[in-house]
């Protein structure tokens, strides 16, 4: 028994070293901008950079748009498939898993060929069109996570009974979605949303190849040209990821709490 916990501790210490040192190293490096003393200079430099503010804001907006599109696309579909088309479930599930199989760089390569200025749908011809294309691209990236979260959420409630109950009370189907189904899968939707946010906010490949002024390409640019600011940006990015995961934990725990009461 004691030997069994000894090796566990060794494994854990090694893991903490491997995962802790890069975080420590990054924090340490980010505060070394001023020679000889620890300072937050790199952070002030980053936060004061107008391009940081612009690209970060752009990516936040893109993330929010992606979440909205994703929810509008996934929730009704997952609901409808569970309620009326159970036979289609394997097909839909397979499609939602495709973005894990097809690398993002390939998908965006296809966009560039398919929606260029000389094509039938020249989305890349205008900034607004490219933004729309990027949003839809991000939606595909988030699709596996969003669909899985929502479908799991729907599994825990009895979709058919809830729908029949609402319809017997005279509710139309938009009312059913908005007032009955969505509140019941809210935690699942929020989990998917936070995960989407974490993925989109620093995404590099799609934004770079579609030439949009997003946070990911900005990070790369700073990394190529500056010494200490990248470390500060990495700390900020890690904090954002951590906050998103923390929020997922929080809403999941809140739900458990309310369900118990």
């Amino acid at each position: 028994m004691k030997r069994r916990s000894l090796w566990s501790w060794i494994v854990l210490v090694l893991a903490i070293l491997y995962f802790g040192l890069p975080l420590l190293g990054t924090v340490d490096f980010s505060m070394k901008m001023r020679r000889g003393v620890y300072s937050l200079d790199a952070y002030w430099a980053v936060l004061g950079d107008p391009r940081f503010q612009a690209t970060f804001l752009y990516s936040v907006v893109m993330a929010c748009m992606t979440i909205v599109v994703g929810v509008l696309l996934v929730v009704p579909t997952a609901y409808w498939v569970r309620l009326k088309l159970p036979r289609w479930r394997p097909v839909i599930e397979f499609i939602t898993m495709l973005p894990l199989v097809i690398p993002a760089i390939v998908i965006v390569f296809g966009y560039i060929r398919l929606y260029n200025t000389s094509s039938w749908l020249p989305l890349t011809g205008s900034a607004l069109g490219t933004d729309a294309l990027l949003t839809l691209g991000y939606t595909t990236l988030a699709l596996p996570y969003m669909y899985r979260a929502v479908d799991t959420g729907l599994r825990t409630i009895d979709v058919a009974t809830l729908t029949e109950a609402a319809e017997s009370l005279g509710a139309g189907w938009i009312t059913v979605m908005w007032r009955v189904i969505l509140p019941n899968v809210l935690v699942a939707v929020l989990s998917g949303a936070f995960l989407t946010f974490a993925i989109v906010i620093g995404e590099f490949t799609m934004a770079a190849l579609l030439n949009r002024p997003a946070f990911g390409p900005y990070l790369q640019l700073v990394g190529a040209n500056r010494a200490y600011e990248p470390a500060a940006l990495a700390v900020i990015a890690f904090a954002i990821t951590w906050i998103c995961m923390g929020l997922i934990q929080l809403v999941t725990r809140l739900q458990k709490h309310t369900m118990r009461v």
Binding site: L21, P22, L23, L24, G25, T26, D28, F29, S30, L195, A198, I199, G202, E203, F204, G216, L219, Q220, G223, P230, A231, L233, A234, A237, F238, T241, C244, M245
Partner: peptide, 14 residues
Amino acid sequence: NFAGVPLAFAFLAT
């Protein structure tokens, strides 16, 4: 989920 550009920075700094 902490992949991408910031991860590269973290390992460069370490």
